[in-house]
Structures are given as C-alpha cells and as structure tokens.
Design a protein around this nucleic acid. Structure first.
Lengths: 134, 134
DNA sequence: GGGCATCTACGACGTTACGTAGTAGATCCT
DNA sequence: AGGATCTACTACGTAACGTCGTAGATGCCC
C-alpha cells in the first residue's frame, strides 16, 4: 500500500469505467497511435454529439486516474491508453477475486458461470502459464 | 435484458459494494440465520459507531438492489444475503470479462496475475467442471 | 388499555464520481 | 498581428453512497 492508500483507509480497487469514459478509452484502444482531443472528438462524432471540451475533460480525468498517458505534440496533448483493454479487465477480475471470501469457492462459481468456450480459453491460458513458469 | 435495461441503454453490470454496504453484507454472510437491523447494528457497534437508522437505510438499499432478502419477524424485518459472497465475486469477475475486448487475452492476463495457489484452485475448478458437465 | 420501547418508512444533507459544457487565457501558424 | 486552436479551470445536474433525524405504526408489559 502507498502512503496515500493507508491514509485513505481501505484501498479501493479499480472502479469500472463510466459510459463515456469507456467510449473514449475504446477509441484509444482501437487507435494505432496516441490521439489528440480533436481526433478522439472526431471519431466519437460519428455516433455521439459531444462538445469538444467534454471529450477533453474526460481525457483529462482519465489521465488523472492513470488510465491514459499523454505527451506533448506542439501545443496539444496526445493521449494513449496506459494499459490494454484486456489488462483493465484482468485487473477488475483480480480485484473482485480479492474481495471474495473463499477463493476456491469463488473460482468454482466463476468457472461455472463462463461459457464452454471461455472455459476452454481458461484451460489454454493455464496450460501456457504452466509451460512458461513451470 | 429486461425492459428497463433496454430503456436505460447499456445495461450496467453489478457495481462493487460501497464500504459500509460491504461491512453490512459481511455481517449477513457470517451469520447463521437472517438478522434484524438491531442485530446487525449491534455487531457493527464493535468496531463502528453508527446510528441505528444508518444501518437500516443500508439494509434497505441493499434489499432494493436485490442483494439482500427480508422476511417479517413480528414488526421487524430479518435480512439475509441474497447470494453468497463468492457468488457476488464471481458475478463481478464475469462482468469484467464481458467488458474485455479479446477474452482470450483477458484470461491470459488474468491467470498471469493470480498467485500460484489461485492458479491451482482454478485448475481444480476447471477439472471439476469437466468431470461434471463432460 | 394505556404508555413506553421499538421498528419502519421516508426524507434529507454532504461527498464523490461522472456526463456535460462554457469561459478565459495561452499558443501557434500564416 | 490576428484568427484558429488548444488547454486550464470552473461549473452544474444526476446518481450512488454514507450518514442521520423525524414521524408514525406496532408490539409488549403492567
């Protein structure tokens, strides 16, 4: 735990993204390179009518939450996702597991909920892990 | 999807519990039988100084969110958890996985994050699933 | 059966997160 | 220099949550 987390009491895990935050992150995740506010705004304009500054605010908040990183490009900032979408998902899964009481029971219930295909993917992932880490 | 969910747009998955909500749920989960507001209040009083009505409000909100169920006992209500703690955790994990882009990638990252022991528990759970469902 | 204790229903207020946007001032390019 | 563009900051509405009070219903005891 960091000092801030201790001071704040119970360290809160990652929270799920808001709806707009998710839309913005999806643009960053699907982009090749880092995007400016304008570029994200343009891409979102296909489906949503948002003010330029709205997109800017969201990007800014995401940066404060360490979900995006930004670098200067002239007077503008370029934003990119700090982590792949799948990493975020894995973080949320881990966090949920950490809050479960009995991990064995939680994992049993989890695998009972996933589809056959997902179960197969899980087996693959575990097999790969074993091959790599021993 | 229910009609409400369709009307609301993107159906939101289960949200993580708030701090006090979690404390209250933990009392219910660790109790043998359904508890009254007073009983929950008394148990929480060991560590936190809360108004009786605060506990009541939280229990009530949890019931509205279908996280607890209640039955009459004289003029009072008795509350019990609607699902085991581990089921809640599994739901959150499922929800996180649903929001991941590439499930394979998300699961690979997830198993890469868990401890060796948790990975072993996962293998067990999958083996049991295979034995049961074919 | 009247009164006290207890319980619920409902409302209320502060805080924080998020969606949404405007204004003001800095910056860059022509 | 001046317009276009970008950022920083502020702001407002809504919803969730932590927190509690008041008012009225209900049950129990003497």
């Amino acid at each position: 735990m960091t000092a801030e987390e201790i001071a704040a009491g119970t360290p809160k895990g990652p929270r799920p993204l808001g709806d707009l935050e998710r839309l913005v992150m999806e643009q960053l995740w699907s982009a090749e390179a880092a995007l400016t506010v304008r570029e994200v705004h343009e891409r979102l304009a296909e489906t949503r009518d948002l003010a330029y500054t709205t997109v800017m605010t969201v990007l800014d908040r995401l940066a404060k939450k360490k979900l995006t990183e930004r670098e200067r490009d002239g007077k503008a900032w370029r934003y990119k996702a700090a982590a792949p979408r799948e990493e975020l998902a894995a973080d949320l899964m881990r966090d949920a597991l950490d809050r479960a009481g009995d991990r064995r029971e939680a994992l049993v219930r989890f695998v009972g909920q996933v589809s056959d295909e997902e179960a197969a993917l899980l087996r693959d992932a575990l097999a790969r892990l074993e091959a790599r880490d021993g």
